[in-house]
Design a protein around this nucleic acid. Structure first.
Lengths: 340, 340
DNA sequence: CTGAAAGCGCTTACAG
DNA sequence: CTGAAAGCGCTTACAG
């Protein structure tokens, strides 16, 4: 089955290819009657303009790129990325842009793919995730002039527009909530230490701890996996003056932490309170369900995509502060055990 | 920064554009010395051939498509798809193909996207997931002649090549294992009933139940979400002669089921054994860790991608039977409680 | 409002 | 082994 081209439509309609192009793209240059007739014929013979020909004629590729540079193992287990992607998709498909996805091993590979995509003109722009301290991707993207929007911030995005959420404030509120419940020994199990948002959260945690006079507000680094989350939890709960509350940087580690508590005979929430960041259906799956800090991740992805499309279409995009994560108290938090 | 074209390379090398093209694509028509010189210059000025120009010249788009037609909610929570995607990616990027991903609401939307992609020549082929009974996508893809490989089977793929795993055998082995432990009342919490592999598993479950004389081998339908998994489990465990073993069609429902047992004061595995299909890190996160039926999903995705690339390159692809899922016994299974 | 033509950046027969 | 040229299917000034 041969695919119809613009020439087929033009022949059937008895007009020039140019006229068909104008009609299809909503440009002036054809009468309304002609436009309708051309559109009807195009629909009838199932014509879609070749994306390659369009891209080659200086129009855009109508595709944006997203690269994930995390081990497959971590990627699969965290609902975050899939939720982000579906939000991005919703925005893109409404404007009939495609999403080109690539999973790579590290930042070097990621940078290489950006260079290749730019050379190939394969995408019109990219969404950048997992900002790191001193991120090497940002200057490369700026140098290439490849439109890009950073997901994360507020700092570290260089001159690139970014979409972010005030994680420091959300963390502070969480600590204050635990403090109000009576907790004085609060520890935090953090994600990968070289991610910028981990650093931001750690600083915020230290600050609020000092403000409230919690001398033992410790942050312990981890890597988002259940294994590490469990290991760190075991260590924290084995110390002589163990924490009465734990805040985890993702849902997976929090669930692993809950299992460790159960395995050690520590009752949640009577003996230990647990808070998960990244609220997700996983948090409601376990018993007790986890108190969690969450926000609308698909919407976040959608906003980032919308910003990127603005940049691609030549508009100024100043970036956007998204909603702050809010705490949903469930069964895993309560007052600390009374001191005897 | 202007992107270098093949003409820039040709000028610098002092040859024609055709010669550059031959050199780049490893075609005969240039001397080895010239080829090396051209390659060096291309690398030096950072040239990558425009994917649009390539695609337009009759070469391929060097991209394949994957459409996921499940609600975002379900997508995010199951590690399966992200693992599949990373396996697909690994195979594709080794051959420098791109992956175009789209998330849609239903099969109608999916079919529409296939038609559009075909018309736009945006992808060279597609990977088809979540085969259903009487799948409407298969005849459309066959009619279009868009190269496609189905992930799943063994039946229902029509004339399309497919990659599959013998789920019936894996399920039978699992039931036999539980039988050997002493279980006689075994129930199964199934996934979405209109997915073909759910039907295959259900039939296999009934068959092995009959063969072993388990008159109460019930399958209850669900939808893969934790909510539904919990609800169904509550109902099953509330019946007068409740099952002593439950087999779940995914990890998420199994974890929800475990929580329900805990909430009802039913001890796992002393009072109830639980088996999860789709082994994933989630299964090792809970307490007790779940006995699970699993296999290498990234490899599965990689095999499907490899088959598709074969089809695209014009080779016959007969399809492929992948490894059978194997049972990893962990803490959630044991002998049934003794009858008093 | 419409038609004829150039051009995007490649690939690939076709002559030399 | 190499060069000149046509063609892929669009978009977009440029004349009429």
């Amino acid at each position: 089955m041969k695919r119809p081209t613009i020439a087929d439509v033009a022949r059937r309609a008895g007009v020039s290819k140019g006229a068909v192009s104008y009609a299809l793209n909503g440009q002036p240059g054809v009468s309304e009657a002609t436009r309708q007739r051309i559109l009807a014929i195009a629909a009838e013979i199932g014509f879609s303009p070749s994306s390659a020909a369009r891209a080659l004629s200086g129009a855009t590729a109508r595709a944006i790129g997203l690269i994930l540079a995390r081990p497959a193992r971590t990627l699969g287990i965290e609902p975050f990325f899939m939720e982000l992607i579906s939000g991005v998709e919703a925005e893109l498909s409404a404007r009939s842009y495609a999403l080109t996805l690539q999973v790579v091993a590290d930042q070097d590979a990621e940078i290489e793919v950006y260079r290749r995509w730019w050379g190939e003109r394969r995408v019109d722009g990219v969404l950048v995730c997992d900002l790191r301290t001193g991120d090497r991707r940002v200057p490369v993207l700026e140098e290439l002039g490849l439109p890009a929007v950073v997901i994360g911030g507020p700092a570290g995005a260089g001159g690139l527009p970014h979409v972010w959420s005030d994680e420091a404030a959300a963390l502070a509120e969480t600590v204050e909530y635990l403090y109000a419940l009576g907790h004085r020994r609060i520890a935090r199990v953090a994600g990968l230490p070289d991610l910028l948002h981990t650093a931001l959260r750690s600083r915020a945690f230290t600050e609020v701890g000092q403000r409230l006079g919690l001398t033992e507000a410790v942050t312990v680094s981890s890597d988002y996996t259940g294994e590490e989350g469990a290991r760190v939890t075991r260590r924290l709960l084995s110390s002589r003056l163990r924490p009465t509350a734990l805040i985890y940087d993702n849902d997976v580690m929090a669930i692993a932490g809950l299992s460790v508590a159960q395995e050690m005979g520590i009752t949640v929430p009577a003996d230990l309170s647990i808070v998960a960041w990244d609220d997700s259906p996983l948090c409601r799956l376990v018993h007790p369900p986890l108190t969690a800090l969450g926000r609308d991740i698909p919407a976040y992805g959608g906003h980032a995509a919308a910003q990127l499309l603005q940049v691609i279409e030549g508009a100024e995009a100043a970036g956007l502060e998204d909603e702050q994560a809010h705490l949903t108290p469930r069964g895993s938090t309560g007052p600390p055990p009374s001191q005897h």
